[in-house]
Amino acid sequence: MATISRDNRGLRLAVRYLVLVLVALVFAFPLVFMIVSSLKPTAQLLSDTSSLRAFLPVGDISLSNYTAAFQRAPIGRFVLNSVFVTVVTVTASLFLCSLAAFSFTYLKWRGNGLLLSIALATLIVPFETIAIPLLLFVSRLPWLGLDGIEYGWLNTYRVQIIPWIADALTIFLFVQYFKDLPRELIEAARAEGASWWQIYRRVVMPLSGPVLATAAILKSLKMYNEQYLWPLIVVQDEAHRPIMVGLGYFFQLNVAWGEVMAYLSVITLPVLAFYLVLQRAFIASIASTGVKG
């Protein structure tokens, strides 16, 4: 009986692994397809799509698509622009949104609940509906630069950063997390004479690792992967274009699909590196917020 039981356990384990491997393959296939295709000439790439060869590095394999892609577009500049905009926006967003959430959660002031409700209500407003008014707004905004006051934010980094710093989802994540922190800690700090700023900096934020990681991941992916419409309408010079607008360089009348895949592989690298470096924090944050949710 014991042997049968052990066999059953082994079988169950094998089935479980088989299912997990299959699921992993489903998730890995697009990535594998992208990388493998980036190594093939366009004609072969298109021919291979009708068979499993699409996922295998076979046939005429080379790095020529990468060479051609770098010649076609200033990829390094696009990646740097996106990384810069993402890092600055996420950093500023984590700071300001956590401050806002701290105020909403711990401070008592008139209209607190109403303002939070209004902020959260903006979650249901699609960006497309406010894009044009926002464009008109930023195109006339003043800015104090080295040459004095200038008007209009178009063709700058700030126009890609500042409108995205405050967002309701990030505030909401922080508010939810702060609500679950033990109130006794805050009260004890107050009793000890700590200021609200000290409580924010020395008590609340050191305990907020998981929510910081979650908010950073969500915001980073949004800023790096999804910034298309806004930069398209507010950035007209190549020097400030982000990666998603740069993708358009590869869609000519005759699309060089191999180069498209090479470009996608290159711009995916920072995201992959970001994930690999912070893998443990990601999993911890997801597990943590999942338990709380």
């Binding site: 398209l232 007209q236 010079d237 190549e238 607008v245 740069g246 993708l247 358009g248 360089y249 869609f251 000519q252």
Partner: peptide, 8 residues
């Protein structure tokens, strides 16, 4: 001159 991707 400033060039743009045709798609956008």
């Amino acid at each position: 001159i400033e060039s743009f991707p045709q798609s956008s």
